[in-house]
């Protein structure tokens, strides 16, 4: 596997529920999130490995929430600029999605702020969707009151995709860009470049531009040339 290239591309597509590939193993989780968006479920805790799609799903839930009529908020707690005060009165927003909650665990000020926010959100009937790398019981949380509350919701794992499923995602992504990606090339990219879907999707944008500039088809040989792979 080669080191990731600084591709200098950013995905401008919005993360929506429509452009999320739902693997068979994630159908249940999918239905739970739908319930939350419909207001039938007030607290969903989803956990999964990095790059499994948690951030996409949380942002997509915000997107799916009826805009302007009902405000929504997505807060990635790994954002260094955020302080616990950001949670003050946030329960007045009908949908709050908290991402990377594990990043503030062990920080007493954050844990207490989250604990109080959870209580207020429950009282205010705010829909809360929380994402983390770990399930509630494995969070390095010092505040038992918070940990037990995080365990009380509908907890579900976001399963990582199999290689075949990743190929399907990449093929769909390429199609969206107007690029033809064979499963051989997709497999080659996964083996030689990265297993991480976010990186691979960035790479597809880069390869799309390269094929256009070179007026070439996307073949293994072309990929090797562009990425200088031996």
């Amino acid at each position: 596997m080669i080191e990731q290239l600084a591709l200098g591309v950013t995905l401008r597509d919005e993360a929506t529920l429509d452009n999320f590939y739902v693997a068979e193993s994630n159908q249940l989780l999918w239905s739970h999130l739908q319930s939350a968006i419909e207001g039938k479920e007030s607290f969903v805790f989803l956990w999964g490995a990095p790059s499994s799609g948690k951030t996409h799903l949380l942002q997509a839930c915000c997107h799916a929430w009826p805009e302007r009529v009902q405000a929504a908020c997505y807060l990635p707690l790994d954002l260094a600029t955020l302080e616990p005060d950001v949670l003050h009165s946030l329960e007045n927003i009908p949908l709050v999605c908290l991402d990377n909650i594990e990043r503030v665990m062990g920080n007493a000020e954050w844990e207490e702020a989250l604990f109080h926010f959870y209580n207020r959100a429950k009282e205010a009937r705010t829909v809360l969707i929380v994402a983390s790398r770990f399930p509630p019981r494995q969070l390095p949380c010092s505040l038992a009151d918070l940990q037990s509350r995080l365990s009380s919701g509908l907890t579900c794992a976001l399963m990582s995709l199999s290689d075949d499923e990743k190929i399907t995602v990449l093929t769909l992504r390429a199609k969206h860009l107007g690029l033809t990606l064979s499963s051989e090339v997709a497999l080659f990219l996964m083996r030689r470049y990265s297993q991480d879907l976010a990186h691979l999707c960035d790479l597809l944008v880069y390869l799309d531009r390269s094929t256009l500039a070179a007026q070439r088809k996307l073949t293994i040989r072309f990929v090797k040339t562009v990425l200088a792979l031996g």
């Binding site: 915000c62 302007r68 929504a72 908020c73 997505y74 807060l75 950001v86 003050h88 946030l90 007045n92």
Partner: peptide, 28 residues
């Protein structure tokens, strides 16, 4: 999209006289 979802989507606009009030969750 991330910035939008964090800072703009939570805002609720409401007209008050000749002004637009943007309701924010808190001082932060």
């Amino acid at each position: 999209q991330q910035e939008f979802n964090i800072w703009i989507r939570p805002l609720q606009a409401t007209p008050v006289g000749s002004a637009i009030h943007l309701l924010c969750p808190n001082r932060y």
